[in-house]
Amino acid sequence: MAIGLEAAVAAIGAGIAIAGGAIGTGVAQSAIGAAGLGLIAEKPEEMGRVLLFMVIPETLLIFGFVIAILIMLQAGIV
């Protein structure tokens, strides 16, 4: 399947948007995860709450995803 230069650049842009969000999420989750595991080791009953805090930074990835979808919609890829 051949795609035009504009669509290709848009696809790369969408990829960067997702990657940026994913990296940001990963950095934040590594810190929360480490602290959360420490808490669970002492208070296993806090597992649910830690899990909830753990997923909070995923919003960054979701924003990346939304931007990627918007780019691809504008470029007519999806």
Binding site: T59, I62, F63, F65, V66
Partner: peptide, 12 residues
């Protein structure tokens, strides 16, 4: 702005 956008995860 960010909170309604966050629901895009339903799609994701």
């Amino acid at each position: 702005i960010t909170h309604p956008l966050s629901y895009a995860r339903l799609l994701g």
